[in-house]
């Protein structure tokens, strides 16, 4: 696979979408440019640059030598993204303390492969310490959730 070509193609699509979106905004005139003027200029330049990249890119040595799948092992990254997404979703309704304890416990067990008791213990200790340091000691505004913590 020509990695560079795929990368530039992705950028080309993003830039094209940006260009179309910019066209839908008021462009104004040169003496008074509208809100869509600069986004249109930038996305056009990006379309050109990415287009040049798509045309000119050649497979690198790394591409030619690759025998494993391009994306590599995605198990842990997917687990982390899912866990973080769940934590963000629960952050305000559940509250900082409970969410951070559960988030940490889940990561320690699911991704780091610690035994259950260790994962729970680490989650409670580190989550509790974080809550005390940031929310109580530094007074950083954190969501309390339905429990008020």
């Amino acid at each position: 696979m020509n990695t560079d070509r795929v990368g530039y193609s992705g950028l080309f699509v993003v830039a094209l979408y940006g260009m179309i979106s910019s066209f839908l905004m008021p462009l104004g005139q040169l003496r008074e440019p509208g809100p869509g003027f600069l986004p249109l200029c930038l996305s056009t330049i990006l379309v050109i640059l990415a287009g040049v990249g798509v045309i000119s890119s050649r497979p690198s040595q790394e591409d030619l030598a690759r025998t494993e799948p391009f994306w590599g092992n995605m198990k842990s990254p997917v687990k982390i993204v899912v866990t973080t997404g769940l934590a963000i979703w629960a952050f305000e309704p559940v509250g900082f303390l409970v969410t951070s304890v559960c988030f940490l416990g889940l990561l320690f067990r699911w991704v780091s492969d610690y035994p259950w008791w260790k994962a729970v213990l680490l989650g409670v200790c580190i989550g509790g310490a974080g809550w005390f340091f940031f929310a109580k000691l530094l007074g950083v505004s954190m969501p309390g959730g339905f429990l008020g913590w």
Partner: peptide, 13 residues
């Protein structure tokens, strides 16, 4: 494996 969950939590905070 102990550090990255802590970093993630600090990032969120």
């Amino acid at each position: 494996k102990l550090l990255f969950p802590i970093i993630l939590t600090i990032c969120i905070i």
